[in-house]
Each structure stands twice: as C-alpha cells, then as structure tokens.
Design a protein around this nucleic acid. Structure first.
Lengths: 181, 181
DNA sequence: GGTTGACATGTAAGAAGTTACATGTCACTT
DNA sequence: AAGTGACATGTAACTTCTTACATGTCAACC
C-alpha cells in the first residue's frame, strides 16, 4: 500500500521518549536514527501536523518559545504496532555505494582502485563513529524497550556489522583488481 | 549538489550494453541493477528524454513498434566518469529493515522474535536468488568491463555478503532475545 | 544595550519516486 | 477472424524528500 516510514520512525521515537517536540525529534533523528533513516525538520514539522490531524499524536502542551510537545495516542501506538508486526520490509535499499560498485568495472583498474580506496577511507571514518556510539551506549544508561534491550542497540549492531562487511568487500575487491591490471 | 543517480545508472547501463531502448533499460533494471537500484519505466522514459535534451544520450535509431534506440554521447561518458571518480556516496542508506531493527525493542520479546523470524525467511529467499544469479554468471559468459571484471559482479558480491551479515545478525538478535524473556 | 548563538517552527519550490491510467504494435494461437 | 500476451512508449496524479527561505524567542556574554 504506502510506505510512510517517516511516520513510523516518529511514532517509534515518541514511544521511546514519552513525549517530545518537533525540534527534539529532529535532533533525535540526527543522533539516534541517523544510521537508519534521515529526515530534516522541514519534513518532520508538516508530518507531525498531519499525524495530529489523523489522531496518531496529540499536542500535549506548549512550552517556551512556541515549543509544542507531542505525545503518541493509542491510535498511534496501534499503527506502530501493526507496522512492526505486519510490514514486510522492501529488500534492496537504494545504495549509492552499491551503485558505484556496480559501475566500477567501467573504469580502468587503477582508477577503480582509487575509488575503492576513497570509499574505504570514508567507511572507516563512519565505522569509527558507530563504534564510538556503541562504546558510549555501553558506558551510560539509556532507554530500554519492553524486551529489555537497549533502544537502538540492535540497529547499531547491524550498522556496525554491515560497515565491517562492506570494508572487507572493498579490500577483497582491491586485491582482485590488483591481480589483473 | 543533486543526486540524480538514476541518470548515472542509465548511463552506466548504456555504456555496458552499447545501445538500448527505454524498454531494454527497464528490463535491465529488473534483471541486473535491481539489487542496487530500482526504477520503473515511468521514471526511465522521461529521464531519457531529459538526458537527450541535455546531450548525454542520443536517439541512434528508431526500430519496430516505435522502439527508440539510445546510445551514450561523449558528454554522457564524461558525466558518468566524473560521478564515479568524484562522487562521495552518502553513507547510511534508508533501510526499512534497519528501521524495524531499531524499533524492535518496543515489542514484547516473543513478538520481536516472530518479526525477526519473518525477516529471516524473507532474507533467506533473497539470498538464494542472489546466489543463483551468481552461479548463473559464473557459468555463462557476460559483459566485461575495462578492468576485466565481469560487469555487476562486484555489486552482486557485495549484496550477497551483506545479506549473509544481516542473516547472522538476525540469528544473534534472536539468541539475545531468547536469553532474557 | 547589542550581538551572538542555540532554541524553535514553519513554508515554498523543486526533484525524485510510485502507482495508475492510456495507447498502440506485432506475433502467435485458436 | 478474434484473442492473448509480450513488446513498446508515454502521461497524470500523487507522495516523499531536499534545499532554501523566512521568522521569531531567549540566555549569555561583552
């Protein structure tokens, strides 16, 4: 039917935090969900307005500086639950890295190696960030879900593993190119 | 600046195939690039028209049934090359699987396990498909790039590795949930 | 008292992507 | 001769996403 994963991500964050403003949610996207989904405030504010109209969230209070504090409604909770339990995620995400990988053989092997090398540097930096986040989470207390798993840890773990896999792939690809200049 | 990876993917396919119609390219998307990027004909036809206007491709000939055969121009080749050499791919792809992973702790652990299990089934099916594709490629001759690597193989390899990693992650996540019901 | 900077919320314009609608050709079968 | 189905191309309506514009509050510092 539709996608509307932004809606789901917002409902999830609201469930985790209890209540939050559009601004908080924007920040939360940057901090926590960023490895998984991105959205700017210009997408979040209108979406929250639509979700209010649809009864999935409510404006609980208005704070200083026009700050609106949203919280999830039972309908919202139901929507989120239904998505988690019933939505079959679409397999192959659109990935620019994979597209570059696909097209790489169009380059002469020296150039291809350079591109892979740059890719590696980029990914190593991201991996370091993710690992730092992991360390930070394991040092400090955080939000726990119903299952007792720290909120977001599963996704972070997945992100780290995928990054490592991709790095390994890049290394192997470089080796493969090296052998047949 | 902008993204326009569809344009890049089309240029890449045209380079690989020499020349092709919009219809061919739509099919090529389904077959070869599908694990990496998706696009329907309703996106491809208008894009080819724009690319013709921009001088990146030309209509080389018109065949039966209104079939238009496109080929890449030197400008198009340059555009593709510049992207491959110069474009820093944006790191975290938007992934519905990762979003589910992120939100999973909101469910009670029995339900979470069921979702992971369904995810696994889904991914195992996809992995089998990818592996079959791999086998097929290693049996039959195919398009080779400048570096001598079979066109698309690097991307396919990456896809298979990532799928395996994700499956392993799902197994570990299930085990982790199991221990703390 | 003025400036800076984090806080806070929105709109507008345009690009990218999806789904559905719409049309027509050609080869093969019944 | 009629029907089916792969071939082939397009448009329209709509959703989603990105980038840029636009405005205003409040605290702290100088």
């Amino acid at each position: 039917m539709w996608v509307m994963s932004l809606r789901i991500a917002l409902l999830g964050l609201l469930t985790a935090y209890g209540s939050a403003s559009g601004y908080d949610l924007t920040k939360a996207f940057e901090r926590s969900v960023a490895h998984v989904w991105q959205a700017g405030h210009s997408q979040i504010y209108p979406e929250l307005a639509k979700m209010t109209a649809d009864g999935l969230v409510t404006v609980e209070a208005e704070g200083a500086r026009g700050r609106k504090i949203y919280s999830i409604t039972p309908e919202g909770r139901e929507e989120l639950r239904a998505w988690l339990l019933g939505h079959e995620p679409t397999g192959p995400a659109r990935s620019e890295i994979a597209l570059q990988a696909f097209l790489l053989p169009l380059l002469e092997s020296g150039e291809a190696r350079a591109v892979l090398q740059r890719l590696k540097t980029h990914m190593e930096r991201r991996l370091t960030e993710l690992e730092a986040l992991w360390e930070a989470r394991h040092a400090a207390p955080g939000l726990k879900g119903a299952s007792g798993v720290r909120f977001g840890n599963l996704a972070l773990d997945l992100g780290i593993r995928q990054m490592r896999t991709t790095l390994q792939w890049a290394d192997d690809a470089i080796a493969q190119l090296g052998g047949q200049t």
